[in-house]
Amino acid sequence: MRIRIRHISTYSYASPARSVMQVLRLTPRNHEGQHVINWRIEVDANCLLKRSEDAFGNIVHTFSANGPLMELTVSAEGEVETFDTSGFVRNTVERFPPGLYLRESPLAIADDALCDYAATISGDSPLEKMHNLLDTLHEKLEFDTDPTHLVTNASEAFAAKKAVAQDFAHIFIACARDQNVPARYVSGHILTTESGETRQSAHAWAEAYIRDYGWIGFDPAYGICPQETHVRVACALDYLGAAPVRGAQTGGSGEALDVRISVTDSQNQ
């Protein structure tokens, strides 16, 4: 499947910002399930866009733009060819052994309620357990698609019984790690049936490491394993390490952010 993605963030300020700095993780890499045909990042301010790689192997772009800035647009755009791998994630850039992904990370810590819940997940093998976790989580929590709802941490979202995709991923990760299964956070995009629809936030899911199988994707928000509809952009211990944008600014107030993401099937439209 050929998927075209446009991810455009527009910041506007009521009073001009003196300077803006951002760290972007907006660029997908190749692996067995996806091939990046073309990709472009643009910032509409005079600045140096530096490309580097973070410790997890994600492609990172960094810029600092000097103001005064009333508006700033960051866009990522390109085409990716995807293949169904039944959820297996192979030939990714791996900088750490799976054991690292048992670490606690601030947004994916299991509190008592989550530990209790994780203990109830049945299954004879870790793989079966993860599949059951995927299924029950999807049923147990309401998928909150309101893009204005912010990412919280696993415990809070679990208690609220309502979760955005990022929360779903955090809850899955927290439970998996609690059961001693290495798990990590993936940010990316998903092509849904409502084609032509514009989303206002990126998608997120989880990956778990199962001995003898390797990394396998789990998308608890949709209750499925990632398919050729999924484009994987960055992975880390939790949202903070894989966030599409982390930024800081000096001066400026009344910041408003408008995000538009369109994910389309570029062959059949």
Partner: peptide, 13 residues
């Protein structure tokens, strides 16, 4: 790897 003071960010640097 599970040590809170280990900084994955420094790995490979």
């Amino acid at each position: 790897y599970k040590n809170p003071y280990f900084r994955p960010e420094m790995s490979g640097r």
